[in-house]
Design a protein around this nucleic acid. Structure first.
Lengths: 232, 232
DNA sequence: CCAAAAGTGTTTATGATACACCCATGT
DNA sequence: ACATGGGTGTATCATAAACACTTTTGG
């Protein structure tokens, strides 16, 4: 290594804002939090995250910390923003590269481990008090998600592989925070040609069962290549 | 400081991708580069940037480095992405928080200083070979800019305070890379109510002088508060 | 047979697109 | 007078929005 830097160095961490959807109500949009096992903010709820290893890619670090502290595996992960206010961590200069992620199901109950006492899902609309500047990070991630589902098909990563059109509509209603017309929504989504109609039906519902659909990522890629822009 | 971190620490830098517009042709969209005065990549063109000081905010660091190395003051600055591949810098682990910025005029010729031999504007479409992973950063910034002007009024920061509708249209044509209909463009922008018609005219043109307009940021804020979404 | 959600078309309104000529100014 | 870009209106087309009833299924 022919040259090295002599400057004082901040610490660098990654933090993950992971969203999951648990049902069809507003409070069912959840965010994954851990209870910190160490000072500072021991016993306080916070985002899963931790130090970047020296030879490790940032995204790899985010996935690793998430796995270590919560056991949750992610279906979609994207860099959010880097937070570096000098006083954001009481221990000294800590710069955090924040990521946001989506999971399809909340099936695997998160298991606290490593630096985390516990890991749990909380409603995004009513989270507990959070450590550091983590509330701000959650808020920014939520805003980003709400903006992004309008022009990119990321919302599907909050649903099971197979889903009903009604579930998809409720997802959009929750995130856009307004009611959508059922017929217009169905027509629009189906006309995009991004949904594959399966021959399966919803199970165990006390009424007529709805048809299940899958998102077609290949078709999305192909259409995008041709200039198609997802827009809802 | 009651707690400290013992982990090995990467270095953290900021890099700035600054765009400026110099005329009405495609090659007139410029990016600001410096020629490096030090190894590694001494004599090579690169993005202005450098180390974050320990007590310094990330945005402050970006503005400071830009000022130090180029003398250019920025009209719009926004965080782009954080690049942290382990091998992106030959000296060791260096994580760079990249920013992109816009300037209204290229009037003040950039002056190389500090770690930079020179600073110059280059066409975005035909830049020189760049140090590190800086070409990738420029490309991402360019993509972000092209996407963002469609849903946010950031393009005005590439024009003088007062501009003609024709200049604005050319700016959009260059960034969107397609021709726009003059009448439809004018109607749409004027109908948004975001432009203030001044009583001044373009000067020193060998033909009928065009009216000058200004962007109205307050009106934009007000409309946004009411649910208006900029869209072009 | 009742409750609950699934599924389905048409009409209207709004915004996007296409398009060509006269006007003002400087040389 | 001529060259150059400035400025203007209308008709058509495509997409979005509004809206109510019948069907299927399980209990």
């Amino acid at each position: 290594m022919p040259y090295t830097y002599a400057y004082p160095r901040p610490s660098v961490t990654v933090d993950c804002v992971v969203f999951g959807l648990d049902g069809l109500e507003e409070e069912d949009l959840k965010v994954l939090l851990i209870e910190r096992g160490r000072e500072p903010f021991a016993g306080c709820w916070a985002l899963p995250g931790g130090f970047v290893d020296m030879g490790e890619d940032l995204e790899t670090a985010a996935r690793r910390e998430l796995e270590e502290e919560t056991g949750v595996t992610i279906d979609y992960l994207e860099q959010l923003y880097t937070f570096g206010a000098p006083q954001r961590d009481p221990r000294g200069r800590v710069i955090s590269v924040a990521w946001y992620g989506l999971v399809r199901t909340l099936d695997h109950t998160p298991t606290g481990a490593d630096d985390a006492n516990k890991a749990e899902w909380f409603p995004v609309v009513s989270p507990p008090q959070l450590a550091f500047d983590h509330q701000r990070i959650v808020t920014m991630a939520h805003e980003r998600l709400k903006a992004k589902i309008r022009y990119a098909p990321v919302g599907f990563n909050l649903l099971p592989e197979q889903f009903t059109l009604r579930q998809l509509q409720r997802l959009y209603e929750i995130l856009l925070d307004r009611p959508l017309d059922k017929r217009n929504f169905r027509r629009k989504l189906l006309s995009m040609g991004l949904l594959i109609e399966t021959d399966e039906l919803q199970q165990d519902v006390p009424h007529r069962a709805a048809r299940l659909y899958r998102f077609d990522p290949q078709q999305y890629q192909e259409l995008t290549r041709q200039g198609f822009v997802f827009d809802l």
